[in-house]
């Protein structure tokens, strides 16, 4: 009844082969992966929460201006610089990476939907890259909008004129923030692909380790992303107040081991590429895992 004869099977095989649609290109797969990831991201309540958190810094200059209008004109741009450096680049960029990049692969592993992708002929690298690009689009938009609004809130009050150098400063900070989003996101994506508790490891690495390494005199801060994003900030690191420089040895070492802009930029790109490559490797090597996998 249901046992297909060899010739019938071969005929059906040939017919299906002829009718089977032509598969899309590699970039097409990247786009498909990205569009599904965007749909998943945009339908999540956590996006609203992340947007609210990302926009919180905007309230600070606005509140400062309201409370201290007479002095605000002098400090508006300083507040902006402080907020972008301390909040947007060093707190929000890692936070948004933990919010969105860890879930890009990690959630598929956690919810077992990865099995649908693993049984499709999608190139694993295209799938990972698509997911990463979706994260990059959403997070970059959130962060850049927040930085621009913070800038506007800091400088658009009566008496503060925006000059071209301010706009250049804004563009510079946006660029550094995007690089931070890029590097932190790749690391967070890797944590999602390689570990069971990416958020925990992410918090430990991005806040615990980075904070510690930045404060300790010596060269350990070379093993942080912050070292390289800081090196790209418009204000020279040596001119910035930093409590780790309070000791003479610390000051000496920080001066000796400063990273120039080009090296910092190259390091961020290389680190991002390595994190992504290792994420792809993890996805390729990953075996199906579920609590019911063993022995079923």
């Amino acid at each position: 009844m249901t046992t297909t004869t060899k010739s019938a099977f071969d005929e059906a095989l040939l017919r299906r082969h002829e009718n089977r649609p032509k598969r899309i290109s590699y970039l097409g797969y990247v786009g498909v992966s990205m569009s599904l990831a965007l749909i998943i991201l945009l339908r999540r309540q956590r996006l609203l929460m992340a947007a609210i958190i990302a926009l919180l810094p905007v309230t600070i200059p606005a509140a400062t201006a309201y409370l201290s209008e007479s002095e605000f004109a002098d400090y508006g741009s300083q507040i902006f610089v402080h907020l972008v450096e301390q909040l947007h680049i060093n707190v929000l960029a890692p936070l948004l990476a933990l919010f969105f990049a860890t879930m890009q692969v990690g959630e598929d592993v956690e919810s077992n939907t990865l099995v649908y992708m693993q049984t499709r002929p999608t190139p694993r690298s295209a799938w990972v890259l698509g997911r990463y690009l979706a994260y990059l689009v959403v997070t970059s938009l959130l962060l850049v909008v927040s930085i621009v609004l913070t800038f506007i809130a800091s400088t658009s009050l009566p008496g503060i004129g925006i000059n071209p150098s301010d706009v250049m400063l804004l563009a510079h900070y946006c660029g550094v923030a995007l690089l931070a989003v890029m590097a932190y996101g790749a690391l967070a994506l890797l944590l999602g692909a390689a570990t069971r508790r990416p958020i925990v490891y992410g918090v430990l690495l991005l806040y615990g380790w980075q904070g510690l390494a930045s404060a300790v005199p010596g060269v350990v801060d070379f093993l942080t992303i912050k070292k390289y994003t800081d090196a790209l900030l418009p204000v020279l690191a040596t001119q910035r107040q930093n409590f780790s420089m309070e000791t003479e040895l610390g000051t000496f070492q920080k001066q000796v081991f400063l990273v120039d802009g080009i090296s910092a930029l190259a390091t961020l790109f290389v680190a991002t590429a390595l994190f992504l490559a290792y994420s792809i490797y993890c996805v390729r090597q990953r075996e199906f895992a579920s609590s019911r996998a063993i022995g079923n």
Binding site: P21, K22, R23, I24, G28, Y29, V32, S33, S35, L36, I39, I40, R43, R44, S111, N112, T113, V115, Y116, M117, R120, P121, T122, W127, S290, R292, N296
Partner: peptide, 27 residues
């Protein structure tokens, strides 16, 4: 067809099959 009963959240039946087809490589 896996035994596990897991899907992407907030997705209709059509969207699910459509996106799986796209991941297969269909236009």
């Amino acid at each position: 067809c896996p035994e596990i009963d897991h899907f992407y959240e907030n997705m209709t039946g059509f969207e699910f099959v459509y996106h799986m087809n796209r991941h297969w490589g269909m236009g």
